[in-house]
Nucleic acid binder design. Structure first.
Lengths: 250, 250
DNA sequence: CATGTCGTTTGATCTGCATCAAGGCGCGAG
DNA sequence: CTCGCGCCTTGATGCAGATCAAACGACATG
């Protein structure tokens, strides 16, 4: 199956056989239901840095990330910002039953979203209980991720935060990507130092310093702009402060 | 309607007319559905400090807080702890479809929970879509609260954190409680300094110092053990760093 | 009444990260 | 080629909150 840059193609053609679809809100939809979703969906593309919606603005759709990365952030009056959500392909954005967005939604990289008009989506949800069930599952997963994130923000050191972030992205991303032969893990971390600092509750200088430290110690290597290589994943894991086993859900 | 200490009484008798019921997972249940829930429910009481379940332990029920306060916490190997959930009356605990608890669940005060055996609860959920819908709503609310909490953990100063916590409890709690004539807000903050520090990602010494500071400045007053009086709520709100309007959901 | 325990307060000192500041590197445009 | 811009790195310094330490008040127990 050849993949083309998504424009206005059926969701099913786009993702039906790929891992993304199996994690998305429509994971268990088939036949008629999928057709109904087709009717109300449309794609939107954004360039890295563009804002999808501002906190407080009207948001008349819900959406699912097809390619790229989106972030949810909150801003305080004086400009302090905290990222509160990181959406990778298959992740869901928007809240049924709410008019406006509670967060700034921003494209961290070039981004394609598959949007569903909200009102009809809600109607389909009511008719099709398993969409609601799937959404509940996804929301519970997100809540677990948020709680893991709270531990990171409240109790981890800068070094542990950086190591954790790299591991989190590696786990989510690398599963869809290539896995080098020598056991090293190669993937790209498509976040600026500033985005990382907003994720971690640090300043960008601290992020830069800690990245340099991990690099000097050989725990990570960087190639070119944002390619990261982890020679030994378990070694990096030990720097996260997490339990060696279990740990992250999602 | 006289209230008695809950022992083994029907959920409906216990809460049908009180604000708790209207926020709980069974908010929209009636007749048969409520009867079905009656069949599978039982109360459990805990003393302040007791553990309801440990992270990783089997948890074969879901539950809703009737009276008292429960907390969800995560612990790192070296003992650092972060609270990730604070459950007040009507709040829901437990995840359908998961065998074990992901968090330590602890009684912060004397606590009564209304438990539903998990398997039958899941069955009822499948038969009764609006329970799932209600649970989705509640989970989305919790996710919003978690994200507000992340902003607090990542970006607020110790002083702002304390002020925020007091306002959060006051809003949730005071709505069920008395409201003094002179515009002052009186309620009890039934958390130890240690519990507060676990909530806020601080040490208990810092919590104590900041509480003293707010007291000296007259922003709060304390009466006896844990009674708190807020002479001017708006004044305290300004110390939270939040937008003056909107702000907390839930 | 002395003794112990638990939660809390307060003081003295230390330190990890923020803040302020200056360059460096890659890249596209003129 | 040079200039400017976006992003990143590194250095010097300061401070908020952690850590270590002591003692207090309330309350229970022998």
């Amino acid at each position: 199956m050849t993949r083309t840059t998504p424009k206005i193609q059926p969701y099913s053609q786009e993702c039906s056989d790929c891992p993304i679809r199996h994690r998305a809100v429509c994971a268990r939809c088939e036949g008629e239901e999928l057709d109904a979703l087709e009717q109300i969906k449309y794609y939107r593309s954004f360039e890295a840095g563009q804002t999808v919606v501002w906190a407080g603005d009207k948001m008349d759709f819900v959406a699912s990330v097809v390619t790229g990365i989106a972030t949810l952030s909150q801003t305080m009056e004086d400009g302090r910002r905290q990222m509160v959500g990181l959406l990778l392909p298959s992740d869901f954005a928007g809240r049924p039953g709410r008019e406006t967005s509670a967060y700034d939604v921003t494209a961290a990289t070039d981004l394609v979203m598959c949007c569903f008009r909200k009102k009809p989506f809600e109607d389909i949800m009511l008719r099709t209980p398993h969409i609601g069930q799937r959404l509940l599952e996804m929301t519970l997963d997100e809540l677990d991720a948020a709680r893991e994130w709270m531990l990171l923000l409240g109790r981890k050191t800068a070094r542990e935060k950086i190591a954790s972030l790299i591991c989190i992205i590696a786990r989510r991303d690398a599963s869809l990507q290539l896995n080098a032969a020598d056991g090293a893990l190669r993937f790209d971390l498509p976040l600026t130092r500033e985005a990382m600092s907003e994720y971690l509750g640090l300043t960008l200088e601290t992020v830069s310093r800690q990245m340099s430290a991990l690099r000097k110690e050989g725990l990570i290597m960087t190639e070119g702009k944002r390619q990261i290589v982890i020679p030994d994943f378990d070694l990096l894991l030990e720097e996260t402060g997490d339990d060696s086993d279990g740990g992250f859900l999602v």
